[in-house]
């Protein structure tokens, strides 16, 4: 009789084990996050793509510090023009604070690897948010974005160091680019991109002067008077994108 009880107990234990495995979510894949300042960061503002006031820029470093990087599966899709929190039921968050150099760390495709979530639920990640936060260590401590390099115009060369301490959160809809991103199949791989449009700071000489981007961008002229540390104010400028897709910005 004891042997019977032991067999039944083993059967029950085995069934429980099997059901626990079957009930476990297995639809997961790897979601990789990249950041990019595009070719304007790696190649600079060179003719004909000079700044709106005619300066050629070459960047030695562009440091950004990011945190709270989260991808969402939203239905209905998130509309950044409406703003507000992203109501995604399924999320994949990359933990930690990440300070990146968009120039020196860039790959051939101008992207910088931020990190990956290895067990992200499968589905379409059609929204993305991240926070620009102040770095806490080293010479970047206290700043969320730092740009250094040299500017040239009509034989004049001006070194620059632009520091921004502004913290803000970008909330974007789906990535817009050559291909759709964020489509993560079961046990597959997908990626998303945090994109910084530097021409929203410096403008573009190859675009009309009355282009909204040029009318809003300060250009480089305000930074020509000194080679020391200068303050860069980004408030009101939309430099954060998901590819070409615009994002909602919450300034802190």
């Amino acid at each position: 009789m004891g042997l019977c009880k032991q067999s039944i107990f083993r059967c029950l234990f085995g069934c429980l084990f099997i059901f626990s495995i079957m009930a476990a979510p297995v639809q997961a894949g790897t979601l990789t996050f990249y950041a990019s300042g595009e070719d304007l960061a790696t190649e600079g503002f060179q003719a004909p793509r000079l700044t709106k006031d005619g300066w050629a820029l070459t960047f030695s470093h562009i440091f950004v510090t990011l945190t709270d990087i989260t991808a969402y599966q939203t239905d209905p899709p998130y509309d950044p023009n409406q703003g507000g929190p992203i109501p995604g039921k399924t999320q994949a968050t990359l933990p930690g604070v990440h300070t990146l150099d968009l120039v020196m760390s860039a790959q051939e495709d101008d992207r910088v690897l931020v990190g990956a979530v290895m067990d992200a639920p499968a589905g379409h990640y059609n929204a993305l948010s991240w926070k620009m936060t102040r770095a806490t260590e080293g010479i970047l401590a206290g700043y969320s974005m730092v740009l250094t390099g040299t500017a040239e115009k009509e034989g004049e060369t001006v070194p620059f160091q632009l520091y921004s301490e502004e913290e803000r959160t970008y909330r974007c809809g789906e990535y817009v680019g050559d291909e759709r991103k964020g489509l993560l199949a079961e046990q597959g791989e997908a990626d998303l991109e945090i994109t910084f449009h530097l021409d929203h700071i410096f403008g573009r000489a190859d675009k009309p002067a009355d282009d909204p981007m040029n009318t809003e961008a300060p250009g480089f002229a305000p930074f020509t008077n000194g080679d020391g540390k200068q303050t860069l104010t980004l408030h009101g400028l939309h430099i954060g994108h998901a590819g070409e897709g615009h994002c909602n910005v919450e300034w802190h």
């Binding site: 817009v176 680019g177 590819g243 070409e244 897709g245 615009h246």
Partner: peptide, 13 residues
């Protein structure tokens, strides 16, 4: 539907 032009883009669902 995705629309792209001169470095700007948007999607509608």
């Amino acid at each position: 539907v995705r629309a792209r032009h001169a470095g700007h883009g948007a999607m509608v669902h």
